[in-house]
């Protein structure tokens, strides 16, 4: 099963033009993966974004999760303490990297943020290929303080998979775009590409 597609899709709970946060109804062990491209298809355009962070924890900050002693596995602890799971939430932070309106894909910020409570779903391979075809989508990601090298490497790896047989070609094309964007930061470029080839 594609990660993040099991059960109910997360919904947008904080919306911004550059980034948004979506939350699952509860804690999930297989949320969207780092660097995965996701889509919000509610509204006049589909907003595409890249998963830059995922965090799980108590919804109420006043009730921190206490670690039990003993040798139980996490699954066993959850089974023994069924009240814990409903108190936990998984939240995913997404950085917008483009949008699709009609037949056109734009590597630009969307004109408006995604609607609150809109469902966030995995981008289809076709959407991923469409949005990442020329590497321009990287500009928004590189410009985001939320996107570190590990995220960019994960994005490139994931998008390359969507490109199938043309993965190598895509990686070079995107890498070149990255090299242009990071021309003054060779160490960063190197670190990202190390993540891609790992």
């Amino acid at each position: 099963m594609t990660p993040g597609t099991g059960g109910d899709a997360p919904r947008v709970v904080e919306a911004g033009l550059r980034s948004f946060v979506c939350a699952y109804e509860r804690y999930v062990e297989d949320p969207f993966r780092l660097g995965q491209l996701v889509a919000v298809r509610e509204g006049p355009w589909s907003i595409l974004g890249c998963v830059v962070d995922t965090e799980s924890g108590p919804e109420d900050p006043g009730r921190p999760l206490q670690a039990p002693g003993g040798s139980l596995t996490a699954a066993e602890v959850f089974a023994e303490n069924p009240h814990i799971r409903p108190l936990l939430r998984t939240r995913v932070t997404v950085v917008a990297c483009g949008y699709i309106e009609g037949e056109g894909a734009f590597a630009l910020l969307p004109p408006a943020p995604p609607p609150l409570l809109a469902r966030v779903e995995s981008a289809t391979p076709a959407e991923t290929m469409h949005a990442t075809s020329d590497g321009a989508f990287l500009a928004l990601l590189v410009a985001s303080a939320l996107c570190d090298d590990a995220v960019l490497a994960a994005v490139l790896r994931g998008a390359a998979t969507a490109h199938g047989a043309a993965a190598g070609e895509f990686t070079v094309r995107a890498g070149k775009e990255l090299a242009r964007l990071l021309k003054a930061e060779p160490a960063r470029l190197s670190s990202i590409l190390r993540g891609v080839t790992a």
């Binding site: 070149k176 160490a187 190197s190 080839t197």
Partner: peptide, 25 residues
Amino acid sequence: GATSWPPGADDGPLAALLREVLLDT
């Protein structure tokens, strides 16, 4: 930067990709 810290000359995947990526960028 690109020439001060050039990609390695080895045949490893990182060095090969870096060389290809840096060409014409």
